[in-house]
Amino acid sequence: MKSENTTLGYNSKVEGEVVVTQADAVINWIRKHSVWPMPMGLACCAIELMAVGASRFDISRFGMEVMRFSPRQADCMIVSGTVTYKMAEVVRRIYEQMAEPKWVVAMGACASTGGMYRSYATLQGVDRIVPVDVYVSGCPPRPEALLDAMIKLQDKIGRERSVKNLTAPKAAAAAAALAEKEA
């Protein structure tokens, strides 16, 4: 069999049933094709988010249809809507309950910058309380725009140094333990 996938350089005659690649590539490939979004639907943008989930735009083409309303089962918070200061506290708490690795998409003008709500009650951009990976412009953004953002997020996940991120906390802990021993 001749492989179609030239990036893997797979040739069953030469290499048997073995595929050689990098750990980062495998981990990121798994992660980016299995994003579990948490729909943080706070205002009108959430309607477009629902459209994205429905059959016409069909987010499941990208492996993200499993929307979870529990932060513990989700890894990508889609903030779709106006974040008031009163709600900001809740958004941050829910973000903290999500397991690592986690990503945030700010969907629409409100979530990105406060949008048209330049007022005392509205947080002027959800990036003031949680780290945002992708911003989507629009009021509301078209479903295609959100899908585009999710594909951008996939690209971003694909470029992550996953192994380093996995081992870095361990290495830091080991270094700290060593330093304590020596002291």
Partner: peptide
């Protein structure tokens, strides 16, 4: 007398304010 942009006050929850380093700030009126 209250300005539309708001007035700086502490964030609703003190622990969240600390971890997220957030404040309630007057909105930029531009």
């Amino acid at each position: 007398e209250f300005p539309l942009a708001g007035i700086e006050v502490p964030f609703p929850a003190a622990d969240v304010a600390e971890t997220a380093n957030a404040k309630v700030l007057p909105a930029p009126m531009m």
